[in-house]
Amino acid sequence: MNDEATAIRMTSDIILERRRKSRNVRLCVYLALTLLVAWSVQVTIIDDTDWERMGSLANVLEGANRFIGIDFSLFKDLVEPTIETFMIACLGTLLGVIICIPAAWFGAMNITPFKPITYPLARMMMTISRSIHEIVWALFFVAVVGLGALPGIFAIAVRSVGFIAKMSAEAIEDIDPGPVEAIRSVGGNNLQVLIYAILPQILPQVLGVIIFEWEINIRRSAILGLVGAGGLGLVFFRQMNTFNYHGVMTVIIAILGLILLGEAFSHWVRRKII
């Protein structure tokens, strides 16, 4: 009885001790984070800002106020770029999905054909695609294929490979191995296993991911015009360069409208799939 009591007290002491220690650690972490914030604020906001150019708060508000308003005369010029933006997003996503097929196949641990080479290769593809921003991709493709919609499509395709392939590869790694074995045992080859055992299992999930990415791609394609790849971004850039601030606002509203439509559609489709 007595032993038990001391044992309990000892364990509670240990727990309390541990809790105090973790509290100390947490305190240190918070302190470090706060110091980091202070340092970052000092360097980025206080030192690097041109306070004189900005002037007083009234000046800033005035600057922001310029943007409020809509340029109705721009409407008819917006229809075509909006459709273009939408189409670039669609074609880019499609091309991205096509590039994804080998990437997801190589990047899934359980079905990758030759582990020491194909697996790291696919993973590297995904990381490169995700870590380089679409603007940079677009610049690269503009340099390669010239101005127009094509570099935009390529940029979006390459940029969306990373996310779709990663999610699909993870979905493939999580499949139920039963059907795979069943198809193998009746003599199916690798391709048949892929089509009849793996694809049906991952399809709903992957379709959801693709539609989600498509929705993001609309957002991306709206800015690719900034570097010469067509669509709404080009109009935005022109309005900005001619200091037509109301026009800038109009373009942003057009982008918002397009994205809202895309989001509503994607919500509806995803609910339907699941």
Partner: peptide, 20 residues
């Protein structure tokens, strides 16, 4: 919905160049 680049351009035009 508005891409970060567009935010960046808007803020640059309001607040001037710099990390703010």
């Amino acid at each position: 919905a508005v891409h970060e680049m567009i935010w960046a351009i808007l803020f640059v035009s309001i607040l001037g160049y710099g990390m703010l």
